[in-house]
Design a protein around this nucleic acid. Structure first.
Ligand SMILES: [Mn+2]
Ligand SMILES: [Mn+2]
Ligand SMILES: [Zn+2]
Ligand SMILES: [Zn+2]
Lengths: 144, 144
DNA sequence: AATAAGAATGCAACTTTGTTGCAAAATACT
DNA sequence: AGTATTTTGCAACAAAGTTGCATTCTTATT
């Protein structure tokens, strides 16, 4: 039993070819993916609608989390073991979006600093997205 | 000369009825607006395409800033004087999205805490969006 | 291994959102 | 007032997202 199958089972989801494929795409990716990215990688095999529904299911089960954007193309990334096993989200890391390659990645080791809200507000989740130049692009850009 | 007209002039934009109207909508609003919200308020008078182009122009001139979301409907809010006069963005405040009324607001007095990125990454902008229950909804919800 | 119940998928039809080119209208400048 | 430049509306289109329903697949049970 491979990794994607294990994750699906432990989230009490039925194991289907489509779900396995999409989960494998996430497991292979080293950056967050938009719906569009997934569609490109497997719309020959699976319907657009199935991709929508699968992403939705994965979100609800704590298999992936979404990352807000200002360009109307939400990104999705795999959650850590804690989210998957507990069935709900415990993501507390910063996200980075590169202005050059426009890849979005999870900075798993950078945790979101706490912030004090004005009186009367109660906090549920925090999202932090930093933009700039990523490690890879910086290397390429300093040839001199 | 009213406020919207002043802002347009000081951003060296030509003053048109549509731009004044849209800017007035922002000046009247006490929360951030999606494209859709603006369309509802004035699509009888101005074309959808004009609204798209106007928001784009306002963004570029530092009149409004955008707020990332995970639901594919970016919100826009008025910038402070500094952005408008300098012509580029200096927004450093936290945004709040209410899980109950789903309004998004600028917490102008709460500044985004700094965060240290891993080696190799350089920072440009930071966005922080907190979700939870807003002041107004909390009041309403505690009747007892 | 066969069956039956329930869940997931594909398809079609549709709605909503966003983009582009161009002619007409409005604005700013002299 | 006249003219160059911008902005707008319209049309046509492309892309993104939603819904209902029949068919297929998965899982649990015999
Ligand atoms: Mn992440
Ligand atoms: Mn703001
Ligand atoms: Zn990069
Ligand atoms: Zn609220």
């Amino acid at each position: 039993m491979n990794k994607s199958e294990t994750i699906l089972k432990s989230s009490s989801l039925s194991v289907t070819a489509g779900r396995k494929r999409i989960l494998d795409i996430f497991l292979d990716a080293n950056n967050a993916l938009a719906h569009q990215d997934i569609e490109v990688k497997c719309s020959d095999k699976y319907d657009r609608v199935t991709i929508y529904r699968t992403l939705q299911t994965f979100l609800e089960k704590g298999i992936i989390h979404n990352i807000p954007t200002t360009d109307n193309s939400v990104r999705y990334a795999l959650c850590n073991e804690v989210c998957i096993s507990s069935g709900h989200h415990h993501d507390n890391h910063v996200h980075f979006r590169c202005d050059n390659c426009s890849k979005t990645i999870c900075l798993d080791d950078v945790s979101i600093p706490s912030v004090k809200l004005p009186t009367g507000y109660s906090m549920n989740e925090i999202n932090m997205v930093v933009s700039g130049i990523c490690k890879t692009c910086k290397k390429v850009k300093v040839p001199v």
